[in-house]
Simulated scan of single mutants.
Amino acid sequence: MADVIPIVRTKTVSIGDGNVTLGVVRREATATGALRWKKDGILMENWNNKAVILFENISSDDDGIYECYKQNQQNERIKHAFMQLIVRECPHNKWSPTDCTKDCEVCYNGGVCDTYIGTCICPSGFYGKRCVKSAGDNRFGRDGQIPCKSNNGGSCIGNLFCPPLPQGCACHAGWKGLDCRT
């Protein structure tokens, strides 16, 4: 079981966003031991001992996979927290690189504007032009009509969904936790 747990699995931000954080919580409130961070497999010593790292001004260089673990546990991968930071190529609410002059649709319920075509990419459980339509408890997909099929009796509980970028992976609407069962 992981000793450190990511606050979020995936976070999507836009170039120029400020005060963006990635963080972890320790499994046990009394747990001690220095924390170490890596970005794309490279040790980031300036973040040592921090449970939360701060990005004051997001750039494309910040895009990547972040890993946090307790010191001396670097070889125990199952005890690490992994997070993905997705950086959209355009500023918030804009699309069409390289000039990024077109306005995005307003996306609801956690939907994210696609940087290249300007439409909303909806999270699992929502669909429609602006992600305002509910797919229901056990459905997902672009039109909200795909039923969950699993060992959970057709329920979306316990399933991690990964829509196209820039959305990133998350539990189905209404579920959270590392195993999507809370």
Rank of each mutant, 00 (worst) to 15 (best):
D137L: 14
T98D: 15
R88V: 09
V87E: 05
W175D: 06
V112I: 11
R9F: 14
C113R: 01
W47I: 02
W37V: 03
G111T: 02
C131I: 02
Y127V: 00
C100S: 08
G168H: 01
R130S: 15
I146P: 00
Q145C: 13
R130P: 08
G118R: 00
G18V: 04
I78W: 08
R27F: 14
G18H: 01
H172N: 03
G111H: 00
L160C: 13
K39D: 08
D62P: 06
N152R: 07
G118M: 05
G168Q: 00
D137E: 15
Q145H: 10
I58R: 01
L22Q: 05
K102Q: 11
N151W: 12
P91S: 07
Q74W: 07
V106D: 15
S14K: 00
N72E: 10
S14T: 02
E89D: 15
L178D: 14
G41R: 03
G18W: 07
H172V: 04
V52R: 05
P166S: 09
K94M: 14
R142C: 09
R9E: 13
C90A: 11
D99C: 11
T98H: 15
N72T: 12
M1R: 08
I146W: 00
V106M: 14
I15P: 02
G177M: 05
A173K: 01
S134A: 11
A31M: 08
T30Q: 13
G136C: 04
P6E: 01
T12M: 06
A135C: 12
M44Y: 02
P123Y: 00
N109A: 11
K94I: 02
K50D: 07
I86E: 07
Y66A: 01
N19C: 10
C148M: 04
L54F: 14
A51F: 00
I121L: 07
V13R: 01
R77M: 12
K38Q: 14
K50L: 14
K79C: 02
G64V: 04
H80A: 04
C120Q: 06
I86P: 02
V52Q: 09
N93C: 06
N49F: 04
G136S: 04
I157Y: 09
P164I: 11
H92C: 05
D99W: 12
D137P: 07
T30D: 14
T32H: 02
W175Y: 15
I42G: 06
R9L: 13
K102F: 06
L165C: 13
C169K: 00
D3T: 01
N19V: 07
C156A: 10
S96I: 08
P147H: 08
D179F: 15
S60K: 08
L54H: 10
L160M: 11
I42P: 02
D137V: 04
C180D: 05
N46M: 15
C68L: 08
V4A: 03
M1N: 11
T98W: 09
K70F: 14
C148N: 04
D3E: 10
G64Y: 09
T10C: 10
K102I: 09
Q167I: 05
G136A: 06
V8Y: 12
A51Q: 10
D40S: 11
D179L: 15
K176R: 10
F82P: 00
F161D: 01
G118P: 00
